[in-house]
Amino acid sequence: MPRKHGKDLNLTKKTNETQYAYAVSAVRVRQIKALETSDIDRMIAAPTDTAVLSILESKGWHSTGRISDVNDMLEKELSETWRYLSEVAPDPALFIPFILKNDFHNLKAGIKSVLSDYEADEYFVLPCTIPSDTMKKAVEENRFDDLPAPFDQLGEEMYDILVRTGDGQWSDVIADRAALDETLRCAEKTGDELIFRISELFVAAANIKIAFRSARFGKKEEFLERAVGSCTSLDRDRMIKAATEGVSALLEYLSTTEYADGTALLKTSPSDFERWCDDRAMGMLENVRYIALGTAPLVAYYLGKEAEIRNVRIILAAKQSGLPAPAIRSRIRRLYV
């Protein structure tokens, strides 16, 4: 079913801004310790990855000093951010569109792990809306009915595909498409314009990447119809048609959309397009620092932390592979400070 156009969306829900006085102040106090551009510069200039960890420790990050624990540290940092947001926000459900993708990832990882005789929760990521224990039990005991919609039906379908055909890619395509649709549905349900606009950007970027990869590998229309989701800022049918015609046709269509500047980067490097999308999301939050009350400062807090973590991950990976400072700098995302 085609999605409604922007003008038809109901994004007029008024939140009681004064309820957010405590929450906004609470996250702003936390943002005092956020990484700044100067910290990023210091990390880029640091001689080794362990020196980067020392800088993070001085900023209050809980590092063990061992590079092998970095993934745990980053995951804990983001989980703690989400836990704090949920604790202080009057209505934490509003921010679920930003973490919903992790639940879909956990469902995929859980089913695949069980079928490969690994522990179901070995590859789970946090934060997520469905508790890890619930997800683990559901996939291990094949009781997807215990999961909320749409995970119940999706889990059944993915499990069935993997058991019957062993086609992991097809199972992933179905899960990714469901994640995109559900994210946008949840964002629309919040009635919050900023949350919807940012979710729309993430979903549109994911759809563009799917279409671009499909065009490069010559995927058929049937595949694209299943993989590409809907969003208000892209004409889904035109994009699918263009993708089936090839990369040039797709880029030509995308040059007519609001993502033209970013998609031009796809020709040279898909990772540059990802950076463009992340920076655009941060750009949407630029004026939020002047907003005293409401949901926007909380959105900025969570997404700002995500951007910090993404940058730390990039810097650490670059340090391990010995990339020079200019190359690292070109990959760094914009920060919210």
Binding site: A21, Y22, S25, A26, I32
Partner: peptide, 13 residues
């Protein structure tokens, strides 16, 4: 009340 709510996290810090 509103300013009090906003002040509490700063005071904790």
């Amino acid at each position: 009340g509103m300013v009090g709510e906003a002040s509490t996290p700063v005071l904790i810090d």
